Simulated scan of single mutants.
Amino acid sequence: MADRVLIIANPAAGGVSAALVWQVARRCRRPVSVRWTSTPGDAVDIARAATASADLVLAVGGDGTAREVAAGLATAWHHTVPMLVVPAGTANSLYRTLWGETPWLDAVEAALSGAAPIRADLARVLELDRLVLAGACAGFPPQAIHEAKTREVSYAAALASLADRYEPYPGRVLVDGLIVHSGPTMLANVGGSRFRGGAYELLPHSRMDDGLLDVCVIGAEHSTLEMLRLTQTGAHVDVPGVVYARGHRIRVERLDGHPLWFEHDGEVLASPRGSYTLTAVPSAVSMIAAPSAAVAAA
């Protein structure tokens, strides 16, 4: 049972408010500290330092906040302090993967009651030496995230707007050195979280504690709108033009010399790079999650 709780809250996340953080703190019913982030990267440093004094860390924010907290805990000297994601972002894909439709109040209660954590895997983007939690994606989704932010519209609206004019890029994906896809590419999603963008089950067979990275590559055989529909239920993995694989090292490339649209944990990278390599970091962080059967049934 957790005796000392640290809440790390990101005020820039879509659903975070002082009232919500106060509600989380009251739910803890034990000594609790609250730290608010002020700049990108703050949560990494706060979480890393927390391992000396906290028994449980609650990440209140979206997938980006959770990634920073996980990165801090994974790189701390004592990296056994568990974390729990309290969903307060725009998409909350990671929370849905870990808890299904369980209300966050019940998840907090389970964490405070001593629920056994899993040892969750992370990924590392080698070119950036950056840890990834929920996953990374190239192609259509990061371009939609960029448009949602620049046009100040919802992610769903940006997806719908971009779908009719999106042009697949010439791409290649390698898994542990073997080419699994080469040709026109709609997207390539890599990671551990089953869900991305909140509603899209791009990696329906993924587990966050198996030591492997799942990758799904969708080619250009079907319309973007059709794939948006199919990925909401994971039905896309059975149609032609979709490759699903697992491995320890995934390389995603764009072959025409142009920069590759690429994001991880909801953050679009402003980089001229045409390729990225992700490697699995097994059992990197202790994370409170629902029992596997409950998550799988969600």
Rank of each mutant, 00 (worst) to 15 (best):
26 R>E: 15
27 R>P: 00
29 R>I: 06
29 R>M: 10
32 V>A: 11
33 S>M: 12
34 V>T: 04
35 R>L: 11
37 T>L: 12
37 T>P: 12
44 V>Y: 14
45 D>E: 13
47 A>K: 11
48 R>C: 15
49 A>M: 11
50 A>S: 14
50 A>Q: 06
53 S>A: 03
55 D>A: 05
58 L>E: 05
59 A>F: 03
62 G>M: 08
62 G>C: 10
62 G>P: 13
64 G>I: 01
64 G>A: 01
64 G>D: 04
64 G>F: 07
66 A>I: 09
67 R>D: 02
67 R>C: 13
68 E>F: 09
68 E>R: 09
70 A>G: 06
70 A>W: 01
71 A>T: 10
73 L>K: 14
73 L>D: 10
74 A>H: 10
74 A>C: 09
77 W>N: 12
80 T>I: 14
80 T>V: 13
81 V>P: 07
81 V>E: 05
82 P>Y: 13
82 P>I: 12
83 M>S: 13
83 M>I: 10
86 V>T: 00
87 P>M: 05
87 P>N: 06
90 T>D: 07
91 A>F: 11
91 A>D: 08
91 A>S: 06
93 S>Q: 01
93 S>F: 05
96 R>K: 12
97 T>C: 05
97 T>W: 00
102 T>K: 04
104 W>F: 06
106 D>Q: 05
107 A>M: 09
108 V>P: 06
111 A>V: 09
112 L>W: 01
113 S>G: 11
115 A>V: 08
116 A>M: 01
117 P>A: 03
121 D>Y: 09
122 L>K: 04
122 L>N: 06
122 L>S: 11
123 A>K: 03
124 R>M: 13
124 R>T: 15
126 L>Q: 14
127 E>W: 12
128 L>P: 09
128 L>C: 02
130 R>W: 15
134 A>I: 07
138 A>V: 10
138 A>D: 11
138 A>L: 09
142 P>G: 13
142 P>R: 07
143 Q>E: 13
144 A>I: 07
145 I>K: 04
146 H>K: 13
149 K>S: 10
150 T>A: 07
151 R>I: 00
152 E>M: 11
153 V>I: 14
153 V>W: 00
154 S>K: 01
155 Y>V: 02
156 A>S: 08
157 A>W: 02
158 A>S: 10
159 L>H: 03
159 L>K: 00
160 A>H: 00
